[in-house]
Amino acid sequence: MAASTDTTGNKAARALRRYWRANIRFMAVLLGLWALAGLGAGILFADALNAYRISGTGFPLGFWFAHQGSIIVFVLLILAYCLYMNRLDKRHRRELESTEQEG
């Protein structure tokens, strides 16, 4: 009896570790994109990007990223995070429920 509770506990701890690692991985990807759009395209490469223009508009690309593009990217990044994390939460809960049943 004691042994089986112990393995259940271990399984739950392993599930939490897996959940946490998946969270960190996805977060790192999104933060990479955040830095690329805001700090990269909007600032560090803005002078180079300004040589190009978004076709059909008057926007130089670097200026556009600094004034509008980065904000649009930021909104989409948070949306992606919400959708992914809420799915990950569900999967984590299913895993926990199945370990409880086995235990």
Binding site: M27, L30, L31, W34, G38, G42, I43, A46, G62, F63, A66, H67, Q68, S70, I71, F74, L77, I78, Y81, C82
Partner: peptide
């Protein structure tokens, strides 16, 4: 922004980019 032109983007990016950090971290 009107007087700063491109550099006014620091306020636009700065005051919105923080929400990504807030939401994720």
């Amino acid at each position: 922004i009107s007087t700063m032109g491109y550099a006014g983007g620091v306020y636009l990016m700065g005051w919105t980019g923080g929400y990504v950090l807030l939401a994720l971290l």
